[in-house]
Design a protein around this nucleic acid. Structure first.
Lengths: 347, 347
DNA sequence: CTGTTAGCGCATTCAC
DNA sequence: GTGAATGCGCTAACAG
């Protein structure tokens, strides 16, 4: 198909019609027009009609920027989040969107690709876009930045990260790790492996919290910690598969594996399949996150209510905006164990 | 952890410091302050210093809303897209974000959950949030709505949908369907099945275009169309798997299947595995989309450059904004055949 | 180079 | 009820 020829259809920018045009056309004052625009009851039905038809005929639409300047609110909230590459961010974003959709607020998003950008957004934000409130997902601010947010005066809530000075919505990762491990223990397992991220360089600390939960659940029932059962690796499925193979080739292999994420758990499932190890009869596997795919594989996992964390964070922000709450405050999203069919008592 | 007691730390809203405060403190006029704020060269180094320190001391940050009202631009662009549930939307959004990140523009997103909301956004937008330009993903406007966009005066570009009056970035789905089918033919296949969405109720018409491409490639080499090889079903993997099983149980089963999406292709792979049919030696499978997972399964597929479509759409919008182009104009995203290992000559 | 002023479009007093 | 005036914070045009 040929490129469409560039027709100079574009008309000269006609000066936008303002509230004054409407007032003139309706033969009333601008104040009156403003009143009908804002549903102010103190305007007679007759003049309201006049104004309305004038608006109609002029195809007038009020300028929100001017309105914002006048009332001092923007009716938009901002969200800072990491590059949209992980399903978990999307899921939280959807939660945010869900509550915003039924409000009068708009959402402007700031994606951070790299640490430099993160700092730029964290410290220089109010210059760019005036927002009434701010949501920050999975990006922990340092003390200086947290202070910046509080001093800037714009209400801020952290989702999936934590700071003593700010409002936040977090999952109790220690408890999550404990839940998963306990479940395995209750099924009768004692040889429980843990497959996780590299703990030393935590992008954010959830992974090591889950690990703490794992350790603590073990201690509760006095199962000695076995270093051979602890594996660190990349977050993707492939490396989890490789790691799992090592794990399952041990002289005394574990009867259950707790993976710090569903992606890893799926890798483990594959490794087991390749090694002809039956799940769950010979090996139990539990994941973390409850991503969509996990349902497809019937993976037992910890559901950390990603969507709901977005919802809760946004509601908390609204509470801040309406002075029904003030920082700091902290809320935990509920954790649910989804017992599906990759876990069973040990052989 | 106990809920943190609500400390009334929040100070009374101190009146925000304005450009006038800075002017007063620096003992200059507001114009001068504005000039240094906007890097206007005609300011002596000395006074610039004064102003800068005043800004520093007052911790002043200019009000972007006021600026926007004054200059008549918002430096934000809006994007309307379907509920963020499919990876393809995300991928396009990432492309958009990618080019916006290196610009001075912000992004406000409008997610549409249902048709009613779509119409609301399409017709009532300028009231909500003033944006300098608009991106619309995968949601085809009707003639009335298209007209609304052109008359509203805000530059608009459609990504992954099409309208004769507007600028748009689309994939050539007919060609994509043809590419996939031809590839199979060139490998030597003649019994080629097509697995797709329900064509009658197309949410958007891409699927039927791909089908057209499939048919046309068949005709080119005079392979008669076999209705038994045409299957319609839901978009998910499971139903594709069920369909594929039927297909492969035919008396004269196809030697290759072209799936209208990667999700379906993966379902087919599973069906083949369950039926002990070897891929690609006994059955070739080709998908469409090049989602991430496809790489993992080494699926041969058509890459329709989702990310790039976001990039191109945004660049086109910028061209509109700077008058380097005017509507209508249409661009095709490149299509690439990713020949991986689920395709081979027929047995 | 720099201070002053007039809008940007709307909401909101305050009188009438 | 309704019109006129004032201000939101900033930019830009105009004097000086």
């Amino acid at each position: 198909m040929e490129p469409v020829p560039i027709t100079v259809t574009k008309m000269k920018d006609t000066p936008p019609t303002t509230i004054r045009d409407v007032a003139r056309k309706a033969k009333v004052g601008v104040g009156t027009v403003s009143r009908v625009l804002n549903d102010n009851p103190s305007v007679s039905e007759k003049t309201r009609e006049k104004v309305l038809t004038a608006i109609e005929e002029l195809d007038y639409t009020p300028n929100p920027i001017a309105r914002q300047l006048s009332v001092g609110r923007t009716l938009t909230i901002g969200i800072i989040l990491p590059y949209l590459t992980l399903p978990s961010y999307i899921e939280r974003l959807r939660g945010v969107q869900h509550v915003l959709a039924s409000s009068e607020y708009d959402l402007v998003i700031f994606c951070v690709d790299d640490p430099a950008q993160k700092n730029a957004y964290f410290q220089d934000l109010s210059r760019k876009s005036r927002v009434d409130g701010m949501l920050i997902v999975s990006l922990p601010p340092d003390d200086f930045q947290a202070d910046y947010f509080t001093r800037s005066g714009i209400p801020t809530v952290l989702i999936d990260s934590d700071h003593s000075k700010l409002c936040c919505v977090v999952a109790d990762d220690i408890e999550g790790g404990r839940m998963a491990t306990r479940y395995l223990i209750e099924l009768g397992h004692r040889k429980i492996a843990y497959l996780t991220d590299y703990l030393e360089t935590p992008f954010h600390p959830a992974m090591s919290y889950r690990y703490q939960g794992y350790r603590s659940a073990l201690e509760e029932v006095e199962i000695p910690y076995n270093p051979d059962y602890f594996m660190q690796g990349e977050r993707d499925r492939e490396s989890a598969r490789a790691l799992a193979k090592k794990l399952l080739s041990l002289d005394d292999p574990p009867s259950a594996v707790f993976a710090a994420s569903d992606a890893r758990a799926l890798g483990i499932l594959e490794a087991a399949q390749e090694m002809k190890i039956k799940v769950p009869s010979e090996l139990s596997v539990i994941g973390y996150d409850a991503i969509r795919e996990s349902a497809y594989y019937n993976l037992t996992t910890i559901d950390q209510s990603l969507f709901d964390s977005g919802v809760m964070g946004t509601q908390m922000l609204f509470d801040l905006l309406t002075n029904r709450a003030q920082p700091p405050c902290k809320k935990h999203v509920p954790l649910k164990l989804l017992a599906r069919s990759t876990t069973a008592p040990p052989p």
